[in-house]
Design a binder for these strands. Structure first.
Length: 399
DNA sequence: CATTGTTTAGTGATTT
DNA sequence: AAATCACTAAACAATG
C-alpha cells in the first residue's frame, strides 16, 4: 500500500482534466524546486501576499492556477490541485490559505507544529488554537469541535506533557510541551506516521463550493462538477483503487448516527455547528500578516542540519532558551528505547513525530501569534525572527 | 459563564 | 480477524 502513489504516478499526473475542477481555488505555489514543504505556503517572493482571503470561500470561483503538474520532487501524484489523495504529499495545496481541504496532519502533528513554531517548549492551549487557525485556513471555518479534539489529544497523547502554570502566573490553563523523549525521536527520524488522515473537505464550505457530498458508497466524495469531469473522476478513482478522496464524515450526526445519548439537550452546551463563521472580518487581518518573504529552502536546510531542533539539547533558536530549561537536559534516553522500559511502552504511541512533522515545522520558523490576553510570555513571537511584519491580530480566533 | 482538561466511548480505516 | 490508530462526540470537573 502506499505504493499506489507511485504506481499511479505517471498515468495520472497528467490529469489536466482535473484542472477543470473549479472546486478549489488553490494558490498553487510557484516554486518548482524543492518541494519539500509539507504544507503549502504562500507564494514567496513576489508581492503576492496570498491575498488574505485567498483560498477562502470567497475565491472559490476562481479558475485554478494552471499550476505545474509537478513532476515534483515527490514521485507522488497530485490528483487535484487542492485536493490531495489520501496519504499523498500535497505538493500544491496551500493549506495556509486553502479553507477547503483539511490539512493532512493529525492533530498531534498540528500540536507539534504549533509547539515548534512557538520556539518555546511550552505553549498554551489557546496558542495552539491560534497557531492552527492562523496557519491553516481550514480550521478557521471548520466546526470548532476540532478544538475538542486538540484538547483530547493533548490529554491523551503521551508525548504531550502538561506544565502547570506558576502560582503567580496569571491566565488560565496550563502550558503544554512535548515530551523531550519524543522530540528526540522525532529528530532521529525514528518514527513514521502510520497514515495520514483522509482528505476532507470542509463541510462548512461544501455548499459554497458547489461540492456535492452525497453519501457515497465507500468514502468517496461526490464532487459536483460537470458530468464529464465527474466521469473522469470516477475513472480516476477506480484507477486509484477506489478512494481518491477520503470523505468528510459527511453527515456527522445525521446519517452517521453516533452513539447512545441522544440527549444533548438542544441548547445545552454550544450552539452546535450549522453556522460556520465563514469569513468573518477577523480573517482579513488574520491571514494577511502571515505573508513574508521567506527563504523556505534555507529554512528547511537549517532545519535539517539541526539548527532547528526541539529540545534535544541542540541549538534551539535563541529565544527558546529561557523557559526551555524546564525541558531540556534531555539527552535522557537513547533513541532506541531500551526494551521493556516504560520508554518503549510509550513509544508506539508516537505516531506523529516523523520527519514530516519536523520538516513541516521548519516552515514554522514563521510568525507566531502573540498570546493576546495572556500577559505572560507564553507565545510571544520572536519578533526578531519574524519574516515580515506580522501584526498578530488579537482575537482572531474569537471563540 | 467560558475555557481548560480529563475521561469514556464509539467509528472507520489501516496495519499486522 | 484482531489490534491499533486517528478522530469524533460528549460528559463532566476544575478553574479563572
Amino acid at each position: 500500500m502506499s505504493e499506489d502513489a507511485q504506481v499511479l504516478d505517471d498515468s495520472l499526473t497528467s490529469l489536466q482534466w482535473l484542472q477543470e475542477f473549479s472546486i478549489l481555488g488553490t494558490n498553487v505555489p510557484h516554486h518548482t524546486h524543492h518541494q519539500h514543504h509539507l504544507f503549502g505556503h504562500q507564494q514567496l517572493g513576489s508581492d503576492a501576499p496570498a491575498s488574505p482571503l485567498a483560498g477562502d470561500p470567497a475565491s472559490i470561483g476562481m479558475p485554478l492556477t494552471p499550476g505545474k503538474p509537478t513532476a515534483a520532487a515527490y514521485s507522488r501524484m497530485q490528483p487535484l490541485p487542492g485536493i490531495v489523495a489520501h496519504g499523498h504529499c500535497p505538493d500544491d495545496v496551500d493549506y495556509k490559505t486553502n479553507a477547503h481541504i483539511k490539512p493532512p496532519y493529525s492533530y498531534a502533528t498540528l500540536i507539534c507544529m504549533a509547539m515548534q513554531a512557538s520556539k518555546k517548549s511550552k505553549i498554551t492551549l489557546s496558542c495552539i488554537y491560534k497557531w492552527i487557525t492562523d496557519n491553516f485556513c481550514y480550521y478557521r471555518h471548520a466546526d470548532p469541535t476540532w478544538q475538542n479534539s486538540i484538547r483530547h489529544n493533548l490529554s491523551l497523547n503521551k508525548c504531550f506533557i502538561k506544565v502547570p502554570r506558576q502560582k503567580d502566573e496569571p491566565g488560565k490553563g496550563g502550558f503544554w510541551k512535548i515530551d523531550p523523549q519524543y522530540a528526540e525521536r522525532l529528530l532521529s527520524g525514528a518514527y513514521k506516521k502510520r497514515r495520514m488522515p483522509p482528505v476532507q473537505i470542509n463541510p462548512a464550505l461544501r455548499n459554497r463550493l458547489g461540492v456535492n457530498m452525497q453519501p457515497q458508497p465507500r468514502g468517496q466524495i461526490g464532487l459536483c462538477v460537470n458530468p464529464e469531469s465527474q466521469r473522469l473522476l470516477r475513472e480516476f478513482e477506480e484507477a486509484t483503487g477506489g478512494t481518491m478522496l477520503g470523505s468528510w464524515p459527511v453527515v456527522r450526526g445525521r446519517s452517521g448516527l453516533k452513539r447512545k445519548q441522544g440527549s444533548r439537550n438542544g441548547a445545552a452546551k454550544a450552539p452546535r455547528r450549522s453556522s460556520s463563521p465563514l469569513l468573518s472580518m477577523d480573517e482579513q487581518k488574520e491571514i494577511g500578516p502571515l505573508k513574508g518573504d521567506f527563504d523556505w529552502d534555507a529554512l528547511l536546510d537549517s532545519a535539517l542540519s539541526g539548527e532547528l531542533t526541539l529540545e534535544g539539547g541542540e541549538p534551539l533558536s535563541p529565544i527558546m532558551k529561557e523557559e526551555d530549561l524546564t525541558v531540556r537536559g534531555t539527552h535522557i534516553s537513547p533513541v532506541e528505547a531500551p526494551a521493556g522500559s516504560a520508554e518503549a511502552e510509550r513509544s508506539n504511541n508516537m505516531s506523529d513525530f516523523d520527519e514530516e512533522t519536523f520538516l513541516a515545522t521548519a516552515f514554522l520558523e514563521n510568525p507566531w501569534p502573540e498570546e493576546e490576553a495572556d500577559h505572560g510570555p507564553p507565545c510571544r513571537p520572536p519578533a526578531a525572527l519574524l519574516p515580515a511584519g506580522r501584526s498578530c491580530p488579537a482575537g482572531s480566533q474569537g471563540s
